[in-house]
Design a protein around this nucleic acid. Structure first.
Lengths: 184, 184
DNA sequence: TGTAGCATGTAAGCCGTTACATGATTGA
DNA sequence: TCAATCATGTAACGGCTTACATGCTACA
């Protein structure tokens, strides 16, 4: 029942459970891949399991054992009242750091004096393609949310993400143009 | 002389040394705070020192001991030819992952169904202010770079960053407006 | 005289990943 | 019958942070 030692990712999983009702570790990971991935990090499968263990020991989630078909039990987890309380407390009190970005493309552009122009252009082009892929994924997710008020906030975040990807694509075009101009 | 075990942050520091000439660990950290921080992560002081140790043992940087004023020697590091080679190799060959964002504001917006409207608005307002601060910092850095071709790429990254902060601020305004409208 | 900045490091520990281990079910 | 997907976990380790330890110099 000790707390304060739950990580942000732990709280994020708690948050997913507040939507999801009762899910297995496996399903929780899939949900994270469709949501958290876009604005946080989708934890590895193994971390989902270990985090659920921690949350369970802290009394913040509850496991229900299903008919074990195999050597290990099949568990489904749901939020406990204490878990919901902790989540609300964390949302109300934790301090919100400025976003941290690990942007490999920007890092390599910054070190452009050591990269061949061809490689640089290829990298930026590839990033543009990846952005298109992500935009498409996110558009599909946004569509799936519809205008159901239950997903109001998820929809806002998805729209924010789409905006961001669009802007990134434009910024990359600006960089490509600047690079194609001979330097003064 | 073993390599392939240098982390991305290690390579980023190698990259900073390719600009900086010869610097102390302390100066390298300061440089990282003015550059890496905006698109990667500025490593903790202690990590700068341990990373320099690793790079030294790998022959990628070279330390020159200065008159030790105190119990510990004062070291200044510079890139070796092997270090420059490794940096070029890494830039040419390493695969560039899609950027990873840990966006605490978006995470909390996503969980908006558990946050009071007041707290949410306060959080978004605060983020706007932080964005203004960052924008000002970055504007100053961009100015300092001038149009010196040596800082061509740094300038491009700084401009990209400014664009990004501006867009984030606009996106937050859109969210605030959406939240202030009564839901359908 | 005390505090901020310059300066270098070690130790402990958290967060998270990859690799490994195991097995059932479903469909091509 | 083979591969993919569902499903649950352990072990080892990397990367990074915070806390701690130490001491000089300049300045208010």
């Amino acid at each position: 029942m000790r707390q304060g030692q739950i990580s942000t990712t732990g709280h994020a999983l708690l948050g997913l459970l507040s939507f999801a009702g009762e899910v297995s570790g496996y399903e929780l990971k899939q949900l994270a891949d469709r949501t958290l991935r876009f604005f946080w990090v989708s934890p590895a499968m193994s971390q989902v399991y270990s985090e659920l263990g921690t949350l369970d020991r802290a009394g913040l989630v509850e496991a229900r054992e299903e008919a074990a078909n195999g050597p290990r039990p099949a568990r489904r987890y749901r939020l406990t009242p204490a878990g919901e309380e902790e989540l609300r407390r964390w949302l109300a009190q934790s301090d919100v750091g400025f976003p941290v970005i690990k942007h490999g493309v920007a890092l390599r552009l910054f070190l452009g004096h050591m990269v061949s122009p061809d490689r640089m252009e290829e990298m930026l082009q590839r990033y543009t393609e990846q952005l298109e892929g992500r935009t498409a994924e996110l558009a599909q997710i946004r569509e799936g949310l519809g205008d159901d008020p239950a997903y109001r906030y998820a929809a806002l975040v998805a729209e924010w993400g789409q905006r961001y990807y669009r802007e990134e694509a434009e910024a990359v075009q600006v960089v490509l143009e600047a690079l194609s101009r001979p330097r003064t």
